[in-house]
Simulated scan of single mutants.
Amino acid sequence: MFLVKFVFYHRIIGRTIISVGTLLNILIGVFVAPFIIGLTFKSKNMIYIVMGVSGSGKSTVGDLLSKELSLPFYDADDFHFPESIEKMAKGIPLTDDDRNPWLSLLAINIAQWEAKGGAVLACSALKESYRDILRSTTENVVQFIYLKGTQALLATRLRSRSSHFMPESLLESQLSTLEPPEQAITVLLDNTLENIIFEILKEINQ
């Protein structure tokens, strides 16, 4: 396909005198536009869930990714019930009974977000059963993006923030609960934020 396009436009350029601006427009239309259109098409109506344990940077990555995809961003922490926030602030791990109503609420919102054109959601989604709940109200539109990091790196990140209700003491509990997803875009956290976003966008567009 590349060769066909090159020969076709080579013949046009060889037979016709065109301006530099026109040539640039041709090259952009042939080689750049298909990538942009493909990325926009693939993100349409999709729900991208940026997942991982506390300290993995889900909110930061999710917010930046939403801007790149021109989709709204939501943070699952904003949907926690007050009693769950209180438990976590005291260093008490949440149980499945705590999480299930929260996950069901998110699933309802996910269906609404799909109907409105898609979204990016930051959510821990630690277990496969939790991810099943999040997928339960839609079909083939949820894509998980797993931010993977070592315990040492995650602990360092948690110590550097003071405005979040999740204490560092719950990190070990979250890592014990975590069931790494088998079907997800997995990105290592030992990288720059710019490269993390680049890797995610590259995987989305494949």
Rank of each mutant, 00 (worst) to 15 (best):
T138V: 15
T22V: 14
K58E: 09
G14N: 08
L201Y: 09
E182Y: 08
K42S: 03
F81W: 00
V30T: 07
A155C: 07
I49W: 15
T192L: 00
M1P: 04
A111Y: 06
F8W: 04
D132P: 00
L69K: 05
G91Y: 05
I145P: 09
M46W: 11
A33P: 12
F79C: 03
L103E: 01
L193C: 06
L126A: 01
V53Q: 00
L175A: 04
E114W: 14
K116Q: 13
A89I: 01
M166C: 11
G118S: 04
A107D: 09
A122C: 10
G57W: 12
L24Q: 13
Y130V: 01
L175Y: 09
G21I: 09
Y9N: 03
Y130I: 01
K42F: 11
S129R: 13
Q143M: 10
T186G: 12
S70Y: 07
V187K: 02
I196C: 07
K148L: 12
F198L: 10
L147I: 13
V30A: 07
L103K: 02
H80D: 02
V32M: 10
N100W: 06
S129E: 12
M1H: 08
K148I: 09
L94R: 10
S104F: 06
Q174R: 02
P101H: 00
V20W: 15
R15A: 12
H80F: 01
R131H: 02
Q112W: 07
F144T: 07
G14E: 09
L170V: 04
F35D: 01
S104G: 06
M88P: 00
P181R: 05
E199Y: 05
R161G: 08
D96A: 04
S19Q: 08
I145T: 06
E203V: 11
L193S: 04
I204L: 12
T150L: 01
W102A: 00
R99Y: 00
D63K: 15
R157D: 03
G117H: 02
A107T: 09
Y130M: 06
I36H: 09
V7Q: 04
A125V: 13
L103P: 04
V7A: 09
P34K: 11
L189M: 11
V187T: 11
S43L: 05
C123Y: 11
K116D: 11
R131P: 00
L27M: 08
A89Y: 03
T177V: 14
P167L: 12
I196Q: 14
E83N: 08
I204Q: 09
L153W: 13
T16H: 12
I85E: 02
I36P: 14
S19P: 15
K90N: 04
E86M: 02
E83Y: 14
M166N: 05
S160P: 00
K202N: 09
E203G: 03
I200S: 04
K148V: 09
L188V: 11
L121V: 13
Y74M: 14
V4Q: 04
N100M: 04
L23F: 15
P72M: 08
D63E: 15
T186I: 15
A111R: 10
G29M: 03
P167C: 10
